[in-house]
Amino acid sequence: MGTHNDLHSEQGALRDEHPGRAANPIIKVVDLAWLEFEKTDLSAAERFANAFGFVTVSRTSEELQLRGAYAGAPAVIIRHGIRSRFAGAAFRAAESSDLVRLANATDTRIDALPESLGGAVVDLTAPDGAGVRVIADTHELPARAIQEPLVLNTGGGVRRTNATQRAPRVPAVVERLGHVVLQSTRLRQSLDWYLEHLGLIVSDFLYYPGQRERGPTMSFIRCDRGSEPVDHHALAMTLGPSNRYVHSAYQVSDLDALAAGGEHLLDHGYHRSWGIGRHIQGSQIFDYWRDPDGFLVEHFTDGDRFDSSLAPGWAPMTASGLAQWGPPASKDFLGISPGRDSLRELRATATALRADNEFDLSRLRGLMKAATS
């Protein structure tokens, strides 16, 4: 099947397939606010973060807060831990009354966030165990200077004369958090939970080749702000043998910032996992990196924006279908390069096949076919 045969708008749902949204969600969150991690070495985490393009908001022996250039809350919060792990995602409620509605519906409570963040939070747990925070009324950091996109001469359009083009080889300025991707052994159950509790809606579904009748195996999910366009996905979820973080993505100004920022990371000895290329679902130009703890993080630019009127697209899940152009998806990105992480996933596969979840032998065969197609 050709890589470009199943783009978003070219294939919609079949009869009785998942509608991609809940009929009456409890609330509708407006954005992905921040991500939380625990790491063993905050100094190494900060060095990488600054080389990647974050600015440090605050640093203590126990916590590191990192921000992008846009106004708002920190994009990433890292706390010191005995082991490195992803702790969860925080979504922003439209207003504080939504926290009351959510807490009442889930029989939870509203707590105050630390003074460094301000505001309030409702803490929830998704069916696959992922930590989910819904926040409101947090302090807003003022905007910082962004990295202005370069002036381009394109085709017959000349906008730059008597001037050379020199992209600075410096950290790509992170503008904001874009999305997080999670793997789940209970994709359908967890997907429905996010749609019903947070009012998220699906932009695109992927399914294993030959298994469409069994339903989606990956979902790209956006916030619902009505007629206001938003990122193609704030959250993406994929079926797999373990419940884990896959990657997170951070917007930069343009291709030159992304590419020159990548050269800066290479100069400092950091590992590129996969890139540079352009995705199909979401369309963004991407470049993936490993931080010192092995977490996968992405620079991106020029992503799709959808309003609430667009219905989900459906396409087969294939390794070749991950990008319109760029190098083939690396073994490191796919999680199949030899090492500790792939061994952990292999053990998780053996456990998942014996457990009560959505990842069975048929799904394993589908995943293997998708990874090699």
Rank of each mutant, 00 (worst) to 15 (best):
R344I: 12
L346T: 15
R305V: 11
H271Y: 14
G282V: 07
A350Q: 00
S320F: 00
A323P: 06
A260W: 05
D293A: 13
R344T: 10
A350C: 02
W289N: 02
G339W: 06
S283G: 10
D267C: 02
Q324E: 13
D291E: 12
A350R: 01
Q251I: 13
I276K: 00
G335C: 13
N357Q: 12
A260L: 01
V297Q: 10
L258H: 09
H279L: 01
E263M: 04
L322Y: 04
Y288R: 08
D302N: 03
F306M: 08
R340V: 08
R340I: 12
D307I: 13
D267R: 04
W325D: 09
P327G: 06
R272N: 07
H299W: 08
D287H: 13
G339A: 02
T349Y: 05
A323R: 02
G269Q: 13
G282C: 02
Y288L: 02
F286M: 02
W314I: 04
K331G: 14
A352Y: 12
D254V: 09
H271V: 14
A329T: 14
G275F: 08
P328H: 10
G313P: 05
F333E: 12
Q284P: 06
L346F: 15
A329S: 13
D267L: 06
F300H: 07
T351C: 15
A352G: 15
P312D: 13
I285G: 12
Y288I: 13
I285T: 09
S309Q: 01
F286C: 00
M317H: 07
L343M: 06
A350S: 07
E345A: 14
R290D: 10
G339I: 03
D307F: 04
Y270W: 05
D302W: 01
D256M: 01
D293L: 14
F286E: 01
I276E: 03
A260D: 04
H268R: 00
P328Q: 06
K331H: 14
F300W: 03
F306Y: 09
W274L: 11
A323E: 13
I280L: 11
F306P: 03
G261M: 14
L343G: 15
P338Q: 05
S308C: 11
R305P: 04
A257S: 05
R272P: 03
H264W: 10
K331A: 14
F306V: 03
A315Y: 06
L310Q: 09
D256R: 01
L353G: 10
L266S: 02
G313T: 04
G277E: 02
I276D: 05
H279F: 02
F300N: 11
P327Q: 06
Q281E: 11
W289R: 09
R344E: 15
F300P: 04
Q251T: 14
D291Q: 10
L322K: 06
G335P: 15
T318N: 05
F333S: 14
G303A: 11
P316Y: 03
S320G: 04
G269W: 12
A319V: 05
L310A: 07
I285S: 08
L296W: 11
E358L: 03
L346R: 12
L310I: 09
G321W: 01
D356Y: 12
G294P: 08
T349V: 15
R272V: 10
F306R: 08
L266I: 13
A315K: 09
F333D: 10
W289H: 03
L255V: 15
H299N: 08
K331P: 10
Q281F: 07
P338C: 05
Q251H: 03
